[in-house]
């Protein structure tokens, strides 16, 4: 089996290498790929859209439906992890920790419902107190990471950045909270319902901008039609910013959803 795969792989590789003889040289400015469409984008993007970052201009304006469908792919991945792994069966064994004193209660297979007061915290058998150094450092770093993420989203028009990049950074700040403390600590602050609605709401923001453009008389996602409301100047840049915010919301939520579901195998009790 391995020998057969090696032969197939070498044959395919050889054929592809043979086919590279006809391709343009590395870095050639006169290659067909660098002439026709991309010259139009480089020379005219500022005049059309007032956005210096050409990649964002092409991504969020010229080829905006591609980006919308890509955000739908991200939403689909989050929904898939939820749909496949989420396990709603309730736990049989409960451990409760009294926060002021540190006493632990273990309730095995209760036949009646257990109600605990506010001073008790639901925990797992393998609970360890989070390490002080890690706890403190992460607690100080997380707000800065989040501000940086919002900066990346908002400055996608002027510097490298945009909705996807900023969304991933924001999502990773939440995952840092889950790793440094406890998965339950994250879920108390950012509930699963909030994440699910946020991921769908992000794509709905994108679609809403597109549909409103349709209602105002243009084609789908034609930002030009917002000019009567928001002013002629910078209208395309504003449309792009709105769209990037939607993308950022969706990507943040999906990153956290994928992490929570895979790490706890759907039970949302304890992760890494």
């Amino acid at each position: 089996m391995k020998l057969l795969s090696l032969i197939v792989v070498c044959l395919t590789g050889g054929l592809l290498l043979y086919g590279t003889a006809d391709l343009p040289d590395w870095g050639d400015p006169n290659a067909p790929a660098s002439l026709h469409l991309s010259n139009y984008y480089i020379e005219n993007a500022i005049r059309d859209t007032e956005v210096p970052n050409l990649v964002t201009a092409v991504l969020a304006d010229y080829r905006s439906i591609d980006t919308m469908l890509e955000t739908a792919v991200v939403f689909c991945a989050g929904l898939a992890c939820f749909l496949l792994l989420r396990d709603f069966t309730p736990k049989k064994d409960h451990h409760y920790r009294h926060v002021p004193t540190g006493v632990i209660l273990h309730v095995k297979n209760p036949d009646r419902q257990v109600i605990v007061g506010n001073e008790f915290e639901d925990m797992d058998k393998e609970w360890l107190p989070p390490d002080t150094i890690i706890k403190t450092v992460c607690r100080m770093l997380i707000p800065f990471i989040q501000i940086y993420a919002l900066y990346v989203v908002a400055h996608g028009d002027f510097s490298p950045g945009g909705g996807f990049q900023g969304g991933v950074i924001l999502g990773s700040s939440f995952i840092l909270l889950a790793i440094s403390y406890n998965l339950k600590y994250l879920l108390k602050r950012v509930s699963e319902k909030f994440l699910g609605i946020l991921s769908a709401a992000g794509v709905l923001v994108y679609m809403g901008i597109g549909l409103a453009a349709m209602v105002l008389g243009g084609n789908f996602l034609d930002y030009e039609k917002y000019a009567p409301i928001f002013g002629e100047h910078h209208i395309r840049a504003l449309g792009m910013l709105g769209v990037e915010i939607g993308v950022g919301m969706s990507v943040t939520a999906v990153m956290v959803i994928i992490y929570i579901n895979i790490v706890s195998e759907g039970k949302h009790d304890e992760g890494l």
């Binding site: 699910g196 609605i197 794509v203 679609m207 597109g210 789908f220």
Partner: peptide, 19 residues
Amino acid sequence: AIVVIAPLVGALIAGILSF
């Protein structure tokens, strides 16, 4: 455009409604 967009809006609304 409606042929492609209507199911997408439906999917998002169904996603929200499931919560």
